[in-house]
Every structure is written in structure tokens, then in C-alpha cells.
Nucleic acid binder design. Structure first.
Length: 374
DNA sequence: ATGTTC
């Protein structure tokens, strides 16, 4: 049996503010039966039950609730054929519309990702709420020219970063699971585990296809063609082998460090970092920060920022980029001051020897939603 | 996070 205590590690410098509640959640998760390690990344913050910005390994069992409802959520990066000098962010902000069903062939896109029809086809190509977005970016600076070149990127071409997940599908899968089995563990060889994992894998494929459909929509809207540079999932549970054993790797808002370069976005008013993972080590559960991490709760952000900013002021950023967000509450909840400083988060990963910065990317247009909500 | 609320 697993008689050793699970290892808990938090990768964050003292300058990276981590809330006490997030640490308590991390330690509570580490004490679950079968847990082997718990790693908090520098974007660690409290979540609903389990912390966000964390990765966990377990043996013999795994925990669907640690993955959460947005199974398959992640980041995709596309290189556009559009030169930076042809950027028209103001015009795009006025016209781009990603609401309603995608005009493309949803079933074909899903089939390409190995996903069977599941009743959520009408949501494919939609960004969703919360921290999801599609953002057109320009290359701000290149720090590792060799890797930049290996990825066939060019400094004067625009990029598109898409952060979205499995929309209603992942929610449906988690809910169906919790309704029947509660928030407990699943034994890895059980029928219940197999059922959950099959559905989980469908949601991971669905989310990947969703990011591709969103990218198609944006590219059509800005009259560009593009190529997918990378696509990584930061909410998942997968089998993992390590020296002397095997088990399960849960990622909850944690980017993979074992699948090549990833983008770690800041807030919409900050740089995003294209980074190359250096260690693929067990000591950080093969994972990296997935973003800047929330500093203020949504409620706190709304209350505090409504006093300081008019909605119109939040439609532009310090980068002079444009924001499409017609949902008033969401506009405040996702405002840049609600997030930690991305340079410190990435700096912590660099200092821990986990990544090298390849390039920084600056926002031109961040699309959240055109749907109005009171 | 969520056809966006039990």
C-alpha cells in the first residue's frame, strides 16, 4: 500500500502572492486516499473544492472532481498569414462575431478529432464564458530565436491564441458522474473508471476541435489563413508512468511540460509568453502554470473595478488593444487588475528551471462575447 | 466552468 505521505510542492516565489485558501485546498487534495504528489504552480488560486493551477499524481485510483467540469480545456496557437502591418483591430472589434452556431461542418471537425456525435454540436465554435477568449496577437520580442524558428514563426506575422474548452459536454460528463458516484475516487480498473475515462477522452477531443473551429471562425472574420502551431490541454486526467511505477496525472489549470512548447497567457492587458519546457520532471508533475492566475474573486473584481473604471475604459488596454465583451459583469470580472502579473508567474517558472522564454506576444484584439447579459 | 440556475 501507499504508506509514504504525499509530497506537496508549491512552485512560487515570495513575490508571487498565493492565497492561503489555495494552499489549504492543495493540502486537502494531497491527503485524499491514493494521492502521491500535489504540485501548486505559480498561478495557484482557490477553486470550487479543488485549487486551480495545480497538478496531482495518484496510484490505483483517480478523482474526476479534481479535473472539474471543463474537461479538455486548453490553449491553441495559430500562426496567421497576415502581416502585422495589416492588423485592423478596431475594425475587427466592431465586426467579429463568434456567437451562435458555427457555419462550418461541426460533425466533420469532430470526426477529425475522433469524437462521436454527442448532442453538443451546436456549441462547437463558441468561446464560452469565464476566462475563455480568442486573441489576435503580434510578436513583441523573440528571446530564443532558434526555437522560434523551429516552430516556423515569423516576427512580422500575426498569431491567434484560443482558450476554450468542452462547453456543455464536460459539464454534462462530470455531473452525470457525480450524480451516480459522488466526489470520491474511482478504482482504476473498475467499470465506472472506464466509463468516465472514455467520456473524458471524448471531451478532450471535443475541446480541441472546438478551439480549431473558433480559430477557423476568427480567421474567416479577419480574412486570414493560418496553421496550428500548438494545442495543449490543461484540464485532464491521464495515465502516467514514472520510475518504478505508474499511476494517474491530474491537471487542473496546469499546462503540460511533456508535449513541447506552450503559451502561458497573461490577462488581456498583458503579454502572453511562448515558452519551451526544460524539465519534464516528476518533481513538478510534468506541469506548468496555465496563465496568470486570478488575484481577485469575480465578486471582488466587479465591486472594486466598477468604482475605478467605466465600461468603455475597459474596452481598451494599456497595449491599446481592443476588447470585445458586451457582457457587463464579465468585462469587470476579467479586467487585467483581477489577475496576477504574468511576468512574475513566468519568472518563477524560469527561476525553477522549468521553462525558457521563446517569445512574448502582445494583444491586439481580445474577443470574449457579443452576448449581452444583465 | 456551465444551452450560462436546483
Amino acid at each position: 500500500m501507499n504508506s509514504t505521505l504525499p509530497r506537496v510542492r508549491v512552485i512560487a516565489s515570495p513575490q508571487s502572492w498565493v492565497e492561503g485558501e489555495a494552499l489549504r485546498q492543495l493540502e486537502a487534495a494531497a491527503r485524499l486516499p491514493g494521492m502521491r504528489s500535489a504540485v501548486g504552480l505559480p498561478d495557484l488560486h482557490p477553486g470550487k473544492g479543488a485549487p486551480v493551477g495545480a497538478a496531482f499524481t495518484s496510484q490505483g485510483v483517480f478523482y474526476p472532481f479534481l479535473v472539474g467540469n471543463d474537461i479538455g480545456c486548453g490553449m491553441g496557437l495559430w500562426a496567421l498569414d497576415l502581416p502585422a502591418r495589416k492588423a485592423k483591430p478596431e475594425r475587427w472589434a466592431a465586426r467579429l462575431d463568434l456567437e451562435g452556431p458555427w457555419e462550418g461542418d461541426a460533425e466533420a471537425m469532430l470526426a477529425d478529432a475522433g469524437v462521436r456525435p454527442c448532442g453538443f454540436e451546436a456549441s462547437l465554435g463558441t468561446v464560452g464564458g469565464g476566462n475563455h477568449f480568442a486573441e489576435v496577437q503580434r510578436v513583441e520580442a523573440v528571446h530564443d530565436a532558434s526555437t522560434f524558428q523551429t516552430l516556423k514563426l515569423e516576427t512580422d506575422r500575426l498569431l491567434l491564441l484560443v482558450h476554450s474548452g468542452s462547453r456543455g459536454l464536460g459539464e454534462h460528463i462530470l455531473r452525470a458522474h457525480v450524480d451516480r458516484h459522488g466526489a470520491g475516487s474511482l478504482a482504476e480498473e473498475s467499470a465506472e473508471a472506464r466509463t468516465y475515462l472514455a467520456r473524458h477522452d471524448q471531451a478532450v477531443g471535443w475541446a480541441r476541435a472546438n478551439r480549431a473551429a473558433i480559430a477557423e471562425r476568427v480567421m474567416r472574420g479577419v480574412s486570414a489563413a493560418g496553421r496550428r502551431v500548438l494545442d495543449v490541454c490543461h484540464n485532464s486526467v491521464t495515465p502516467k508512468e514514472w520510475e518504478g511505477g505508474r499511476g494517474w496525472l491530474h491537471r487542473k489549470g496546469a499546462a503540460p511540460s511533456d508535449q513541447g512548447p506552450v503559451v502561458i497567457p497573461g490577462s488581456r492587458g498583458a503579454l502572453s509568453y511562448l515558452v519551451l519546457p526544460l524539465g519534464d520532471g516528476e518533481d513538478h508533475a510534468h506541469s506548468l502554470a496555465h496563465g496568470a492566475g486570478r488575484k481577485w474573486t469575480r465578486t471582488h473584481a466587479r465591486e472594486r473595478l466598477r468604482e475605478r473604471f467605466t465600461p468603455d475604459a475597459l474596452l481598451r488596454t494599456t497595449f491599446k488593444s481592443h476588447v470585445v465583451c458586451e457582457d457587463r459583469d464579465l468585462l469587470f470580472e476579467e479586467a487585467p487588475p483581477a489577475y496576477k502579473a504574468i511576468d512574475r508567474v513566468v519568472g518563477d517558472l524560469v527561476d525553477a528551471g522549468l521553462v525558457r522564454v521563446v517569445a512574448t506576444l502582445a494583444p491586439l484584439l481580445t474577443y470574449k462575447t457579443r452576448s449581452r447579459r444583465e
